[in-house]
Write a protein that binds this DNA or RNA. Structure first.
Lengths: 201, 201
DNA sequence: CTATTTACATACATCCGTGATTGTATAAAC
DNA sequence: GTTTATACAATCACGGATGTATGTAAATAG
């Protein structure tokens, strides 16, 4: 049984991507061998090399899939009456994505803790387009809040946006590092609420 | 010329540790070969294997050296009149350590971005003893501030401490990711000031 | 119905890193 | 001054991963 139909081929491609994510998460990217990925996907290395040029190509393909949920769900509505509430909702949405989309969560965990940012991966470390867009969205939202008099007096929207940006980075890091049943995850919601409330006038 | 004196041997050991840090930073831990470390230290693999059991042992030896500056310099004085100011000073001290101790900074960069937390390294991800101690120190300091009426009304010291803890994690991450001349590093001081000021009554 | 391409599996050559072993000149112990 | 332990250097054997080349059966195009 060789030479599958196009749809079947696309299916094995996704199987390989899923397997890669699992093996990357377990072994780390560097120690992951394409043999193990193939075995986890129920194919041979031949299939992997057919769909992907090499491990790096496979890695970037896996990564690309994880960016979609964020651009979809983490948005700032410009017409919102209370921009601070919009920011709070955006931060919550990030946690929700990690909670109910295991594939995305695992990919972020790989990017955060199972990948060494050297050579072909070093470019990922500098702020990516998506991150810059998020920071820009935060800044704009804080500016709208300031214009409406909702921001606490004396706060520079740009600084506060960077502060929240930093907060999100730390939040994701610690959230991923904590055990699922640990109190930190339950407390994340309170952390977000406090974070935004501190900035409200 | 073999069989050095004890002091010379200790010197080559430190040369190897220094070299390891440089190569780890450039190649990542996984891709680092002991051959390259040896060459960078001006010795052969024989010397490396004499002083260290293997790459993992070398890695942990390098890591250990970086923890010292923090326990020395990032402290909370219990008798301080203004605990919030103490917290701010502690946060600043972290940045200062990264600024004027390149070895420590590089080691943290390796731990943050050049190391995959799997198998023998997976234990490092969970909160280490030092991190827990830092969080405990933060909590105690915020509690003292609350007792003195310095903390903003309605804030739970434990939550705020976690918030600052998260902030520090994000701060280090972004500080390391930014270029030395980038404005983010210059703005870190303002971020810290704002962060603490937001919590003051 | 034939030709060609697709979607893999299998087999092969190569290199690279590791750990262990052995060699050795000198420092230190006695 | 001899012996022994030290601090490496040099060599070896081995497995393991990669990339490529080849084989092949079925799907698709014509």
């Amino acid at each position: 049984m060789v030479r599958k139909t196009k749809e079947e081929a696309e299916l094995t491609r996704r199987h390989i991507l899923d397997a890669a994510r699992r093996v990357f998460l377990e072994c780390g990217v560097a120690r992951t061998t394409l043999e193990r990925v193939a075995a986890a996907a129920g194919v041979t290395r031949g299939a992997v090399y057919w769909h992907f040029r090499n491990k790096t190509d496979l890695f970037f393909a896996m990564r690309e899939q994880a960016t979609l949920p964020f651009v979809d769900r983490v948005v700032f509505d410009e017409g919102e009456a209370d921009p601070l509430q919009g920011i709070e909702r955006a931060l919550r949405e990030i946690i929700h994505i990690m909670e109910d989309q295991p594939e995305t969560r695992e990919t972020i965990e790989i990017l955060s803790f199972k990948c060494e940012y050297v050579e072909e991966f070093s470019g990922l470390r500098l702020r990516t387009e998506g991150q810059l867009e998020f920071l820009a969205g935060l800044t704009a939202a804080y500016q709208r809040a300031a214009a409406k008099g909702l921001l606490r007096a004396g706060l520079d929207p740009a600084i506060v946006a960077q502060d929240t940006f930093v907060f999100v980075g730390g939040l994701i890091k610690h959230w991923l590092s904590s055990e699922p049943d640990e109190c930190f995850r339950a407390g994340a919601s309170a952390l977000i609420r406090t974070h935004v409330a501190l900035r409200r006038a």
